[in-house]
């Protein structure tokens, strides 16, 4: 019997429902877990996603045929029952539950188990087969509670202020930037953002999300306004001439990769905050167990280590090669305009 979901060169495919999930080549029907560019690619005829994902897809991919649904609202595609469930990764991010003839498969997309208060609280979904990401699938990746990290960030901002420096926080424009924004809004009103984050911010607030106010960095702003304040910028801006106007400044990178010193040193960051939108080792393990799945497929990340460990724990697991993310890098964003 054919699998409910097959692994094809275009992506994860459900033959019975004739749809793909996060395909990396153009297809007729695509279900999109979330709006990061390695999962949501252009050129598909039809897109199905969560309500909160749709405006982001429109911003990033332009006009297409989009349909959006809420979480836990099953729809049928042929005889296949499809529903979305919160993945907790970024705003709108969803796991895809696919049920066909009583057999349930769940595709996790990217997920994190800690509730960030913005993305919706992750819910493990019972299933027969679970396809999980493994971006941080090694036991060295154990996140501190986000409140601790936020407090570290605020503390760092404070010492920068004492030293007369601007704090430049590097965070992905969709997801991390909003979390960081909420965290630092507690200590200051004047938060400046890069154009890419501004665009995301506009779309999200127009869609009804409540976010702290931000000021867009534009060439007209005199340099003095940044002094001692906070700037949030995407990774693509780090190390570019765009940053010069903030001098003297200190750069803090917010990414799960900052857990390891070497990675932090390679990025030449003044500070690294291991704040991630992915599940850590414990989160991955707990989720796999909570799904009750008899079979687990491990995709993008440390597939071989995580699947081997699961097998040793008595959970049948296999590796699947996908084209999500670069093997061990965080989702590469669309080349975003720096506005100038």
């Amino acid at each position: 019997m054919a699998q409910v979901i097959e692994f094809t060169d275009k992506g994860l495919y459900c033959p019975a429902g004739q749809f793909y999930i996060d395909p990396w080549k153009p297809v007729d029907k695509a279900i999109i877990t979330h709006a990061h560019s390695d999962h949501a690619r252009p050129g598909n005829q039809y897109y199905l996603c969560h309500h909160d994902t749709k405006p982001m897809l429109q911003l990033r991919l332009g006009d297409h045929h989009y349909q959006s649904i809420g979480w836990n609202e099953p729809i049928y595609m042929n005889e296949v029952k499809v529903s979305l469930h919160p993945a907790g990764h970024i705003i709108g991010s969803s796991q895809v539950r696919v049920e066909y003839k009583g057999e349930v498969w769940v595709v996790s997309g990217d997920y994190k188990t800690e509730d960030d208060g913005i993305s919706g609280a992750f819910e493990p979904v019972r299933c027969n087969t679970f396809i999980t990401e493994s971006t941080f699938g090694l036991p060295i990746y154990n996140w501190k509670p986000q409140e601790t990290i936020y407090s570290d960030i605020r503390h760092w901002v404070h010492s920068n202020q004492l030293a007369g420096k601007t704090s430049v926080l590097i965070a992905y424009s969709l997801g991390k930037a909003q979390r960081v924004l909420n965290a630092v809004a507690e200590v200051t009103g004047n938060i400046f953002v890069h154009g890419a984050i501004w665009n995301t911010h506009q779309v999200l607030t127009q869609a009804g999300h409540v976010l702290p106010a931000v000021i867009r960095v534009t060439p007209e702003l005199p340099k003095e306004v940044f002094k001692g304040n906070i700037v949030i910028a995407p990774p693509s801006a780090d190390g570019t001439p765009w940053m010069k106007r903030f001098a003297p400044y200190s750069v803090g990178i917010c990414s799960g990769w900052m857990q390891v010193r070497g990675h932090q040193r390679r990025r030449n960051a003044d500070a690294g905050f291991a704040l991630s939108d992915h599940a850590d080792w414990k989160g991955l393990l707990e989720t796999v167990k909570a799904t009750g799945a008899e079979k687990v497929f491990v995709t993008h990340g440390f597939q071989s280590a995580f699947s081997r460990y699961l097998n040793e724990q008595g959970i049948a697991a296999g590796e699947v090669k996908t084209e999500f993310g670069a093997e061990e890098e965080e989702a590469v964003e669309n080349p975003e305009k720096t506005d100038e």
Partner: peptide
């Protein structure tokens, strides 16, 4: 398991 510790070590490099 020791192999997982080794795997982690090769990723961290230290």
């Amino acid at each position: 398991p020791l192999w997982l510790l080794e795997e982690s070590y090769h990723t961290v490099g230290d």
